[in-house]
Amino acid sequence: MNIFRLSGDVCHLVAIIILFLKIWRSKSCAGISGKSQLLFALVFTTRYLDLFTAFISIYNTVMKVVFLVLAYATVSLIYFRFRKSYDSESDSFRVEFLLVPVAGLSFLENYSFTPLEILWTFSIYLESVAILPQLFMITKTGEAESITTHYLFFLGLYRTLYLANWVWRYHEEGFFDQIAVVSGVVQTIFYCDFFYLYFTRVLRGSGKMTLP
């Protein structure tokens, strides 16, 4: 464990909590892509299958459970409790265009052709594109509430910090996980445009982020 990974995990947790509390307190999921949240729940489900078979640390186990519970709780808020406020019209990204290539690639490019390893690889590839429906929805509606942009900021920051974690682990431990690193770079690249808007619009105190 290093400071980059720990702060990355904290950012990830903060992002998930920001989103959950935003929906819970505003009793609305307007502007939130349910599809992205479904994809994140799928990412955690396929990645944390070793939750009961491989004990790594208390921290690892606790965080996995917390991420799974919050992911499914957020999905249930969007699709059940506050489904009247779910804007399915704007959440129109075709996720099959993500799932099929990601599933195909996880069968082609993996470390070992075993169910657990392929599902882990699937979760890594899927996570790098899971935010696209949400970013697409923001471009479609042309705006995002500031709290949603803070959620996206921490979510983008977490994987950026993981990139620093992998640089550190390569330097310190000679460790290099090609699949995770390449996917992490792709994932972070998708946030670059958002980061630019976030720093130039939202942090200037303009509150809502409106796209040009």
């Binding site: 995990d9 070793d50 491989a54 790594i56 690892n60 470390y111 000679g174 290099f176 996980d177």
Partner: peptide, 10 residues
């Protein structure tokens, strides 16, 4: 470098 899986990561 040595390739290890990131299974100890979240």
């Amino acid at each position: 470098g040595l390739q290890k899986s990131t299974k100890d990561e979240l």
